[in-house]
Simulated scan of single mutants.
Amino acid sequence: MKKLKELMTMKQESIKISMMTAYDYPSARQVEEAGIDIILVGDSLGMTVLGYDSTVYVTLDDMIHHAKAARRGAPDTYMVVDMPFGSVGISDEQDMKCAITLYSETKAEAIKIEGAHLELIEKCRLIGIPVVSHLGLTPQSVGITGYSVHGKSKEAAEQLIQDALAVERAGAVMLVLEAIPSDLAAHIAERLKIPVIGIGAGVETDGQVLVYHDVLQYGTERKPKFVKIYGDFRPGIEALKTYHEEVRAERFPSEEYIYKVQIMEKNND
C-alpha cells in the first residue's frame, strides 16, 4: 500500500497519481489488481450503484457499508472515503462525530470533505484523521451551484486559489479539483505542497480521478465532457438476454451443468 509520504514524493518527483472510484468488493479488487494508486469510495455511489439522481440522498451508513466492502476488496490500496451530504456543516460536535465514525469504522486512510470547511479539517488533523479536500464543482452543492465549470471569472478563480491555500494550511493532505479551467488547476497544483488530483481539471494536476462506472460504461449512460471511455460493460446485457432465452427454452441447464446421482426411486406405475 502506498503511504501518504509516498504520494507526497510522487508529487515532488512529478510522477502522476491515479485515483479511481470503487464502491464494493469486486470493483475495488479490480482497481487494486490494476495497480491504481488510490481508491475513492465516493458518494457518487448514490447515482452509480443506488440509482438516485443525486448524491444528496446518500447516508453515512451507506458510505460505511460500501467502504467496508471496498476495503475487503482492496486491503493494500490507499483508500479515501467521502463524508456524505448532511454529515458536514451541522454543528462542530456532530461534524466531528460523523468524521470519527466514518474514519474508524471503514479503516480508510483518509476521509474526503467537500468545500472549504477549515475548522473541521483542522480539528480532524489535530486528532489524527487525514482529510482530502474537494473544491470546484462539489456535487453535494449542485442544488445551488448547478453542474457547471467553476472558476471561470477572475473573482471566482481567485476565490478558488485562496480556498485551496486555506485548506492546505488547515491540514488537508490532498486536494481534489473538479470541473475548473485547466490553467487555473495548473496554477493551484504548482502553488500547493500537497497532491492535487483533477477531475475535469486538465493534465497539469498531480493526478487524475474518474468514476469506475463511467470509464467502463457500466450501468450508466451519463458521460461528462471530462470522461474518457476505457471499456464497455454493456455487451453483458446480451449475455443476460441469452441466459433468459435458454431458461425459457429449457436449453439451460444442459447435461454438463447437472449433478447426476440416483436418489429418488423410479416410479414404474
Rank of each mutant, 00 (worst) to 15 (best):
K5I: 12
E6T: 03
L7M: 01
L7K: 00
M8T: 12
T9G: 00
T9A: 06
M10C: 08
I15Y: 04
I15D: 10
M19Y: 02
M19T: 08
M20I: 08
A22K: 02
D24N: 13
V31E: 01
E32V: 04
E32R: 03
I38T: 04
D43N: 09
S44P: 01
G46A: 11
M47G: 06
T48A: 03
L50Q: 14
Y52P: 06
Y57G: 09
V58C: 06
D61Y: 02
D62Y: 08
R71M: 08
G73I: 05
G73E: 04
A74P: 06
A74R: 09
A74W: 06
T77Y: 11
M79I: 02
D82C: 03
M83K: 12
P84I: 07
V88R: 05
I90P: 13
E93W: 04
D95T: 09
A99W: 01
I100K: 15
S104T: 15
E109W: 03
E122K: 14
R125K: 13
I127P: 05
I127E: 00
G128K: 03
G128H: 04
I129C: 12
I129T: 11
I129D: 03
H134Y: 09
L137G: 09
P139E: 00
V142F: 03
V142A: 02
G143L: 10
K152G: 07
K154L: 14
A156Q: 15
A157W: 07
Q159R: 12
L160E: 08
I161Q: 08
D163M: 09
L165Q: 09
A170I: 01
A170H: 01
V173D: 02
L175S: 02
E178H: 00
I180S: 01
P181M: 12
P181E: 10
A185Y: 09
L192P: 06
V196Y: 13
V196M: 14
A201F: 09
A201E: 05
G207T: 02
V211C: 12
D214I: 07
L216T: 12
L216M: 13
Q217G: 08
K223W: 07
K223M: 14
F226N: 01
I229C: 05
T242C: 04
E245Q: 15
R248A: 11
R248H: 08
P253F: 10
E255K: 15
E255G: 02
Y259L: 07
V261T: 06
I263E: 14
M264R: 06
E265M: 00
N267W: 08
N268H: 15
D269V: 12
